[in-house]
Write a protein that binds this DNA or RNA. Sequence first.
DNA 1: CTAGGGTTAG
Length: 807
Amino acid sequence: MSAATAVSAENICYSDVRSVANRVAAQLQLCCPHSSTSYPLARVIHARIITSGFRPRAHILNRLIDIYCKSSHFTYAKQLFDGIPQPDVIARTTLIAAYSASGNPKLAREVFDKTPLNIRDTVFYNAMITCYSHNNDGHSAIKLFNDMKRKGLFPDNFTYTTVLAASSLIADHENHCKQLHAVVAKSGTETVTSVMNALVSLYVKCASSPMASSALLMDSARKLFDEMTVKDELSWTTIIAGFVRNNNLDAAREVFNKMDEKLVVAWNAMISGYVHKGLISEALEMFRMMSLQGIKQDEFTYTSVLSACAEAGLFHFGKQLHAYILRTEVKTGGEFLVSVNNALITLYGKCGKVDQARKIFGQIAVKDLVSWNAVLSAYVSARRINEAKHFFEKMPEKNSLAWTVMISGFAQNAFGEEGLRLFNQMRLNGIEQCDYAFAGAITACAVLAALEQGRQLHCQIIRLGFDSSLSAGNALITMYARCGVVEAAHTLFLTMPCLDSVSWNAMIAALGQHGHAAQALELYEEMLEEQIPPDRITFLTLLSACTHAGLVEEGRRLFNSMSENFGINPGEDHYARLIDLLCRAGKFSEAKNVIQNMPFEPGAPIWEALLAGCRNHRNLDLGVQAAERLFDLMPQHDGTYILLSNMFATAGRWEDAAKVRKLMRDRGVKKEPGCSWIEVENNVHVFLADDTAHPEMHAIYDYLYKLVLRMRKLGYVPDTKYVLHDTESEQKEYALSTHSEKLAVVFGLLKLPRGATIRVFKNLRICGDCHNAFRFMSMAEQRLIVVRDGKRFHHFRNGECSCGNYW
DNA sequence: CTAGGGTTAG
């Protein structure tokens, strides 16, 4: 009988109270507290009770209260409860349990406090302790446990089990475990399986705290487990999952192998352990063994294995798996369980098949939050930021994860302002901001070079206790470096409590971008000594560091060692950096040789690197060849046209230069306008070439004019040839123009306190004349001037630039 | 006790 038919029964008239009672009891049988149809049914029953004058027994009221709480209708629940003349302890316990299950520990506590002391019993305390435990408040649970013992009540098995579970939420030290272990040992419950399971679980949870010794605690957990006389399924899976979570995996495998009848849960724990550790082939091997042994797999198995495929980019295998599980039972009503669909969305999303992912999403009848988030992530990782934005706005419900994805999506696609705006909006909406959200916001600051905002976020991170977070810490390293304060990045790196390969890569990249190639290489050596395996990104950053400093020999050595010593095959991006390195050093024949011997056809990154090198060395012939390939490969890319026309202009081939410009116009290619910005008193001031929009422009030009006179006395000669090397305004290419970076630096000189470092940021590569001018400015003004351009940093001090005029 | 959605490095 469905709820709908039960509801229509409302119209039937019942003459006596007994039949009402029977009817109510029958209807309540239909209610499952979590079902969405139960609430309307409960309303009908409630109404029937009121109109009939029937006085239901306590258990009927308790059940109705339960349904109301679980459908978040607390007012009705309270009304019912208040209608009970003298609610007994069972009614009160039910209400507490109901509030607990609906995530309202405060309301539960109100009921608890209003209950007369003399009727509080052990079960009543258990309910409140469980409530705290389920709502992640370990401290209150333990407080209540002690309170209960002081009142002379005897904790039972259930109390110990819950208190141990609650303690595992907060235990971060060996001593916590030992103390509770002693309490349990004294209680006479150390043979009760559920209590011992909870104790093992406590050790396991504590072992994953950064403050505790993981190995020691897992040893204790293992010893406890071995001593247990009666082990149930939970015991086995707790210890296996514990070893999996705490990274010892071999130990997990050892226990797993000892299991007589290996449970699906245990298989699943092993598989997910391998997936999370990146051991994809091991995960798939276990999956294969499972299939061969005919063990029935469930949705946990499939979601883990699908995520393994997504992680490893095994699109083909994933698709086969998709077909395979179509024949299985992870379906309801002909459709996959939503979790399996979600894993499929992620698989297709991670393999770049965003539209396929979107299609699966569209076919899901009952989507959950994970489904929405998976599609959002697919759009973001495909850099389809506009679609991501629209999708995000359409989401019926957004959790902190969705906001985080969107914030970092904006940041990664250079929409720093949008990212920060969303982060603030998230805060206004009262959404909890975890370290991941902060990491996204900090990346937005790095994009904008908003140092002050970044610093403020850093302070908040410390205040909130996220300062040991890897994601936040790693983002901060990059933020400080990209805001020009590489020293702050380094200090942070040295003081972080734990580091991962991302931290090392970030710091190596930071040093490289600032031209400290030697230090970057030293750090790399240290990384190897610390047994952190370098990855493909480590080598990308190292090769860039070598390029910035012109260390050809070192770069070549590193390039060769990546495949010889670390088994990493160089990708096109690695080759592109090698070409860059060689070309900037003028070694064109070697570069051509590398291109000819590459294991794949050269793509745009290779030709771009070659063209950049040709520009620096005025190798027009080769430059034209590279540019022609680029015109084919990416006809809409503005940089190629600008570079080539400048190269022609430098060589005096004005007609060719004009031809390239015309080609650009004919193809409708728009040049990205150059702009520079500087942060002054927490405000970002943006300048374009020949800008007149800034309110203090008069003072800026005035100061610049006088400053140039002083610079000339020190030997500065404005280089008019760079006017032809125009990187900013196409229209005024033959006119004398003032580039945006000069305006920004001069504004900084006017506004920032004496002696303060000037930090200016530019979206494009710095112009040659500006570069020269800043050397003299740093001398004339006795200032440190730091400029970040599209590629790297320049530190101007006493007339010299850190790049050694090589960029 | 197990799963599906996040972050940071170029």
